[in-house]
């Protein structure tokens, strides 16, 4: 039985935001933004589920984030994850990729006996593509980045295709390994209806308290636990973390300045579709640019 960890992140939907979403200290005001399951992480999730379909495997999805990040863990359960864990603590706030990878690596060590770690190629809020490799380094795993296909799945190794940018590489890689998955690898599946019924009320213990009442003794709680509906939350102390390596304290980088990108230009010469004007324009252009192209 293989143990697969998927690293997932809840991200602001960067397609529709502006600098107003930034706080004065340069950090992101996440509360002000709609959030989504990071797109590449869905491809990592799909990869895990396909491996599980091919060989015996347990798929565990972990995310470091605020309590609201439970939303993507529920999505992961709907898709078919076996277990999910929220890693959440105020002490993690302001983490850069180094501090984030430290926390995730310690969580993976706590889970233990892991064969495969899958991460999305990059998150759409930071676009750094750094957390995956930094986790690999910290847990001492081999890595293959920019995966575009999983060709062969066996108990001992995978054959993967990697986008080497200038060349396409087919690589045989033994377990344990960490892979970063691009969106070319597969099409993520839709949530499964039965899983949605099973997990629609899943949440962290504190979220469930609101609906189920006091945590002690109650039948409802036992049912929730038996049905894997109580999402565990790991804090810094559960992981025995060195607080100097967490959050902003453990982050060597600082945001020094943030600028909104504004439109420049302004001295636009507009031509209408008058043929003579256009003729003059293209001829001038070709004259101006003829020599530079030699």
């Amino acid at each position: 039985m293989k143990k697969i960890i998927v690293l997932a992140k809840q991200v602001p939907d960067t397609a529709n935001i502006t600098g107003q979403a930034m706080k004065a200290d340069g950090t992101v005001n996440r509360a002000a933004l709609p959030t989504v399951f990071n797109p590449d992480d869905l491809n990592a999730m799909e990869t895990a589920l396909r491996i599980k379909d091919a060989i015996r495997a347990e798929v565990i999805v972990i995310t470091m984030g605020p309590p609201a990040a439970v939303a993507i863990l529920k999505d992961a359960l709907y898709m078919g994850a076996d277990r999910v864990i929220l890693i959440s603590d105020r002490k993690f706030a302001g983490a850069d990729t180094l501090a984030t990878s430290y926390v995730l690596a310690e969580a993976i060590k706590k889970i233990g006996a892991v064969d495969l770690v899958l991460a999305g190629r990059q998150a759409i809020d930071g676009d750094t593509a750094q957390v995956g490799p930094q986790v690999a380094e910290k847990i001492g795993f081999n890595q293959v980045t920019y995966i575009t296909d999983i060709e062969t799945i066996t108990e001992d190794y995978l054959v993967v295709a990697r986008d080497g940018e200038l060349q396409t590489e087919r690589i045989k890689t033994p377990f344990p390994v960490l892979l970063t998955i691009t969106d070319e690898t597969n099409t993520p599946r839709y949530p499964n209806c039965l899983n949605m019924l099973k997990y629609f009320r899943a949440g962290t213990a504190s979220q469930l308290e609101a609906t189920l009442g006091d945590i002690t003794g109650d039948n409802d709680w036992e049912t929730a636990r038996a049905h894997n509906q109580v999402i565990p939350v790991w804090k810094a102390e559960d992981l025995g973390l060195d607080l100097n390596r967490c959050g902003i304290k453990g982050s060597p980088t600082r945001v020094h300045k943030i600028e909104n990108i504004t439109l420049t230009g302004g001295d636009l010469e507009l031509y209408n579709t008058d043929p003579m004007a256009i003729k003059q324009l293209v001829l001038d252009l070709r004259k101006d640019y003829a020599e530079v192209n030699e």
Partner: peptide
């Protein structure tokens, strides 16, 4: 560029 190209961030590593 950060945040889907919506902002330009200047990052430093002071220590």
């Amino acid at each position: 560029p950060a945040f889907g190209g919506n902002i330009l961030a200047t990052i430093i590593t002071p220590e």
